[in-house]
Amino acid sequence: MTTHRVEAPAGVQGGVSRRDDVRSLRIPILAMVLLAVVAPFVIYPVFLMKMLCFALFACAFNLLIGYVGLLSFGHALFFGAAGYLAGHAAKVWGLPFELAVLTGTATAALLGLVVGGLAIRSQGIYFSMITLALAQMFFFYCLRAQFTGGEDGIQAIPRGKLLGLVSLDNNLTMYFVVLAIFLFGFFFILRVIHSPFGQVMKAVRENEPRAVSLGYKADHYKLITFVLSAGLSGLAGGTKSIVFQLASLTDVHWGTSGEVILMVLLGGLGTVFGPIVGAVVIICVESYLAGLGGWVTVVQGALFVVCVLAFRRGIIGELSRVLHRPL
């Protein structure tokens, strides 16, 4: 049984204690939060919300690939499923915003338990193919199912009121709610990867047989991380469908799974800020090229090729290597 190692992020190893590790991230985190608070007054908030949703999705995905070394090719399943459930809950059941998003998140986590339980029985490439196949199965289910609206998707999902008090129809209000959700997810992930649990996750990534021989149940760690990653992806997907008032087949399609992989790869596998930077860059590139139609796919594909051949550390990975500090 061999485990293949995904290239470790530069600078994460070394003699730095965990506490210093988190402390050294203080300044970049502060800068990120400040930027996010100022941004909606300069840039169109809806565009920023799209970035935040995908950034959270990418962070959740990175938890799995970057810290346990499992490449899921089916994460659109959780993102899209949560989108449908949150949309359905808000529109048909009339649940308020926070409960609708929670419904989506819980569904995604539950699906993560099922898919993860099946997929972690195999390793490496098999794992990727199985997640891809199961996500494709779910895509066909969504295409046929009644409540998803098939090709039309669920449209005109009401944004509703936060805690029944604050109307979310205003984009700026909505933005700060989405920012709060994003930051919750971000800090949650940060806490997980710097916890003892996170250390075991990394041990499983680096050398699974050795982790097992030390008495850690690698499969349990993998499954828990998978469920966490799926749930957080669901949080992102559910929020997105309510912000944009639309849940559609695009979100469960393998194209979306590929997109989130590209974001994390471009930003830097296994880095804290990489997925966020990757998501911002990809969303910008996509909206910049939107007028060119089919060329978006070609550019995405070319970015994949370039990243894999010449730029495997990603933007933040390279940056952290130059600065000699984990980012």
Binding site: L71, F73, I125, S128, G258, L303, C307
Partner: peptide, 14 residues
């Protein structure tokens, strides 16, 4: 080998 998967996925998109 995951990098091979990603590379060929990119090629497929192109």
């Amino acid at each position: 080998p995951l990098f091979g998967l990603l590379l060929t996925f990119g090629l497929a998109l192109v």
